[in-house]
Simulated scan of single mutants.
Amino acid sequence: MIYLTYSDPLTGVFQSQVIDVCNYLNKALDIKVCLVSFISIKGFWKSRKRIKALTKNALVLPMFPTIILWKLNAITLFFTVLLTGERVIIARGVFACNMALILKPLLIRKVSYDGRAAVSAEYTEYDVSPYKSLLPVIKLAEKKAVIKSDFRLSVSTELIKYWENQFNYNSRQHVIIPSTVNSSWSQDLLHSQEKMEMRKLLGLPEEKVIIVYSGSTAGWQSLDLMSDFVSKILEKQPNILFLVLSPSSPQITDFNKRFSNNFVEKWVLHNEVEKYLKVCDYGILLRDETTTNKVASPVKFAEYLSAGLSVIISKNIGDASSFVNENNCGFVVNEKLENDLKPLSEEQRIKNSNLAKKFFTKEAYFSQYKICTDSLMNKE
């Protein structure tokens, strides 16, 4: 079986939602899964080396320059399929899926679409690509991926509803698997004294309540919304520290100027994020109400809970907002937070972490992965 990606950079998300998934399928289901990853020719050899260091059996291939030429990569995929002898593909994203579907009459027996987003909505709402002429192509490619695939993985029930509304999807050949934490993350929490000692080691104040944002500065992250929201909290509660684990951006720079005594910015490697999260109290996940965010399953939600944090979240973010309400593991907010934030109790930390173990690990979705792979391998 091939797990196929196209134009996905090696980020923390790639490590936890691609490489970790392939490793899990290999071990838990005893299936030989080969990662085939088409990546940009810019910095190709460096990126290839990094991916191979994480999963040595991966086939990392250069993609044709610019996304407009995505179909040409089906030629490379054709010879890759011949070389590996594999005839089943799980394809992450619409372009990878359509590349696989092009080969289906010839070499590929079955294709599963690993749907991560409302792709055409994302391109429309956030100008993801500079090539405006690509939008009609993307809409058609997304519809084909949803309708023509033999099976589908979806990150949320809201994404399934999006498929139903946009493409008249009416099959039941799918499973829902949200974004999950990397298997390398430790499930052990820090006790109160250990947490204070680690804060000191990381250069963070021991006495403050810490809100953390961990993630990218992409448009759908709604940094303006988050900055305005946190500003109101800091003006009201001077005992709060806002920690940002992210690359710099205009919003972050401006925030630092206004709240320098209550703000720390760090950009750390993916394998260092966990230790920072575990010394915080609250993870923040605020986003604008767009279709992109309505169907999303942010990895940071799983990571926050796994680290024991309660989550401050906007309404209507995939299935995560309702999860917070139903499980009392944070606050679903609108424009402001009604109550003052207090240090998180050890009892609440343990509860949050246990929720992550139950609902946001690969192991929690063994049955769903097995349904998918059995369907593709004709073991129904």
Rank of each mutant, 00 (worst) to 15 (best):
residue 21 V to L: 13
residue 306 S to H: 15
residue 195 K to R: 08
residue 287 R to T: 01
residue 239 N to G: 12
residue 343 P to S: 07
residue 258 R to G: 00
residue 249 S to M: 10
residue 197 E to K: 14
residue 313 I to P: 02
residue 195 K to L: 09
residue 12 G to Q: 09
residue 301 F to P: 01
residue 38 F to D: 01
residue 41 I to T: 14
residue 260 S to Y: 11
residue 127 D to F: 06
residue 45 W to V: 08
residue 325 N to F: 13
residue 288 D to I: 03
residue 292 T to N: 13
residue 264 V to G: 10
residue 270 H to Y: 15
residue 262 N to V: 02
residue 156 S to H: 04
residue 212 V to Y: 11
residue 87 R to D: 14
residue 150 D to Q: 06
residue 307 A to H: 02
residue 357 K to V: 06
residue 263 F to G: 05
residue 331 F to N: 08
residue 196 M to P: 00
residue 333 V to L: 03
residue 236 K to F: 00
residue 168 N to M: 12
residue 58 A to T: 07
residue 363 E to A: 10
residue 282 Y to M: 13
residue 160 I to M: 13
residue 286 L to W: 09
residue 168 N to C: 08
residue 119 V to R: 10
residue 278 K to Y: 07
residue 10 L to R: 10
residue 126 Y to E: 13
residue 361 T to S: 15
residue 331 F to G: 07
residue 299 V to N: 04
residue 11 T to Y: 07
residue 345 S to Y: 03
residue 120 S to I: 13
residue 311 V to I: 06
residue 227 S to D: 05
residue 210 I to A: 05
residue 346 E to G: 11
residue 199 R to C: 04
residue 62 P to D: 11
residue 333 V to Q: 07
residue 303 E to H: 09
residue 69 L to K: 14
residue 175 V to C: 08
residue 169 Y to P: 02
residue 134 L to Q: 06
residue 61 L to Q: 04
residue 147 I to M: 05
residue 281 D to E: 12
residue 56 K to G: 07
residue 373 T to D: 07
residue 156 S to K: 00
residue 250 P to E: 12
residue 7 S to D: 15
residue 139 K to H: 04
residue 333 V to K: 03
residue 207 E to V: 02
residue 18 V to P: 06
residue 232 K to N: 08
residue 243 L to C: 07
residue 182 N to F: 03
residue 313 I to Y: 01
residue 125 E to F: 08
residue 315 K to R: 14
residue 51 I to D: 01
residue 120 S to A: 14
residue 300 K to L: 06
residue 68 I to T: 13
residue 29 L to K: 11
residue 129 S to I: 09
residue 117 A to G: 13
residue 134 L to R: 05
residue 34 C to V: 15
residue 124 T to P: 00
residue 188 D to C: 12
residue 53 A to G: 12
residue 73 N to D: 15
residue 104 K to V: 07
residue 251 Q to P: 05
residue 339 N to H: 13
residue 150 D to S: 02
residue 91 A to D: 10
residue 89 I to P: 02
residue 276 Y to C: 11
residue 243 L to K: 07
residue 357 K to P: 12
residue 285 L to K: 10
residue 12 G to C: 08
residue 187 Q to T: 15
residue 12 G to T: 05
residue 212 V to F: 01
residue 35 L to K: 01
residue 213 Y to K: 08
residue 121 A to M: 07
residue 285 L to Q: 06
residue 89 I to C: 01
residue 111 V to Y: 02
residue 210 I to F: 04
residue 73 N to T: 05
residue 31 I to D: 12
residue 156 S to M: 00
